[in-house]
């Protein structure tokens, strides 16, 4: 009988690992870049329309926003911006939290808080955009968009 002695200099081999078909971190990484390009366009357009044209910030009131969001074009612009910005920002904050929060109990707590904030704001913003009334009943008719008086 002979004993098999393994080559002491055999190179280290990694234990076989299940090949993951779906790498969520890779998709998160790609999402940051894809959403980033779209957000540059959407947010620069948002800032230019609201702050540069006409009287800029002076013109922003219920009449301005209500008039804008009565238009499906701006509704979808704003809702797309809402979803992409909150998921992009939420994922960025997740990265920052993972980098700096080392407490084993604190980190999951902060991450869940972040998730709750993002989810609530997405639901709230989407509902407001699609359910609000640009011409509500009010005593101050002058506050409403001009088309409400017609």
């Amino acid at each position: 009988m002979s004993t098999v002695i393994e080559n002491p200099r055999s190179p280290y081999t990694r234990p076989a690992r299940k090949k993951r078909r779906f790498n969520i971190e890779k998709w998160a990484w790609l999402f940051m870049r894809g959403s980033g390009v779209i957000l540059v366009f959407l947010i620069f357009g948002h800032l230019f329309f609201n702050l540069m044209l006409g009287e800029g910030i002076r013109a922003i009131d219920f009449g301005f926003v209500g008039g804008k969001l009565a238009n499906p074009f701006w509704q979808w612009w704003d809702v797309l911006m809402l979803w992409l910005a909150l998921i992009h920002g939420g994922n960025g904050m997740r990265t920052v939290i993972n980098d700096y929060v080392t407490g084993q109990k604190l980190r999951p707590f902060i991450l869940w808080t972040l998730f709750a904030i993002v989810a609530i704001l997405i639901v709230l913003g989407t509902l407001v955009t699609f359910t609000f009334d640009p011409c509500p009943i009010t005593e101050n008719i002058e506050l409403l968009p001009s088309f409400c008086n017609a």
Binding site: F62, V65, G66, L86, I117, G125, T131, F132, L144
Partner: peptide, 18 residues
């Protein structure tokens, strides 16, 4: 962004609040 979404949501409350 958190503050911006919350304050803009006031359009659903009343013109006066916004």
């Amino acid at each position: 962004l958190i503050e911006h979404v919350l304050s803009t949501a006031l359009i659903r409350v009343s013109p006066e609040a916004y």
